[in-house]
């Protein structure tokens, strides 16, 4: 499915701000994998996501998705294969546009845009149906501006948009980090529901160790640009937060997980 081989990325190379964000990362996902990614600040989790999405070019290595080498493709060109939800609820939707307009744009992800009408009548019914499934009452607000929605509603909408056209890979970059605990739980429930329903291959970055253990079938821990721990199946099921912390200290050479990881 998704294969990263020897992927590296350094930001601001040769300057005092040099940051080796990814160092020789290798990762292979099989179809239907739901991988959670944890790690401290600056571990390279988001960079990993951005490299797969094509936000920045990689320095070395190759990224293959379903047999296609996408390493050199631009961000919009890769969008055909990827559904993405960002940490910032503002980032996934266009605030000044209507809910239906946002959905209609997402529906056309990866297709050539034409001078055909941006939202057709048939679509609206479909969107209302899909929004109803979210259980947030958004189906009654089809023509509302997205800017009027709460952060949680916007994330739920972005999640729906990312999966409206089934993506080969769903990228969730700490998509609940900016939400309050209750809303975050709701959005995570929706995530599980949607991923299960469409059997999506998923990469999910999170700061919450409980979520990372509870969700998905595989867990990856990153530290200083490297994947330092990769666990799946039954072994992952029996994992506890304590195990993870211990593992973290072990592989990272005694360094403690940062506060944010401990607290969540």
């Amino acid at each position: 499915m998704l294969t990263l081989s020897h992927v590296s990325k350094t930001f601001n190379a040769g300057t005092i701000n040099e940051k080796r964000a990814l160092i020789d990362c290798n990762l292979h996902l099989v179809p239907g994998d739901f991988v959670t990614i944890i790690g401290g600040n600056g571990a390279g989790k988001s960079t990993l996501m951005n490299m797969v999405a094509g936000v920045y070019p990689i320095d070395a290595g190759t990224i293959t998705l379903d047999g296609v080498n996408i390493s050199q493709l631009s961000e919009p060109a890769r969008a055909k294969y990827l559904g993405r939800v960002f940490q910032d609820p503002m980032m996934g939707t266009a605030a000044d546009m209507q809910i239906v307009e946002n959905l209609a744009m997402a529906k056309r992800r990866g297709k050539t845009r034409t001078l055909a009408w941006g939202v057709t009548r048939v679509e609206k019914d479909e969107y209302a149906e899909r929004l109803r499934a979210l259980g947030l009452g958004l189906e009654k607000r089809l023509t509302s501006k997205v800017g009027l929605l709460s952060g949680g509603q916007r994330q739920a909408l972005t999640l729906l948009m990312a999966t409206l056209t089934k993506p080969k890979l769903l990228l969730l970059d700490e998509h609940t980090a900016a939400l309050d605990p209750k809303t975050a739980a709701k959005v995570l429930d929706l995530t599980e529901q949607i991923v299960a329903e469409h059997q999506l291959t998923t990469l999910m970055v999170t700061h919450n160790m409980n979520d990372a253990i509870r969700m998905g079938n595989r867990l990856i821990m990153m530290h200083e640009g490297r994947i330092i721990y990769d666990i799946a199946g039954d072994e992952k099921c029996s994992l506890t937060v304590k195990d993870l912390l211990q593992k973290f200290e072990e592989v990272s050479g005694g360094e403690l997980a940062n506060d944010r990881m401990l607290l969540s």
Binding site: E75, A79, K80, R84, M91, G92, T93, A94, M105, R109
Partner: peptide, 8 residues
């Protein structure tokens, strides 16, 4: 960012 993520 969103528009690019949607393939435009």
């Amino acid at each position: 960012a969103m528009v690019r993520a949607l393939g435009v």
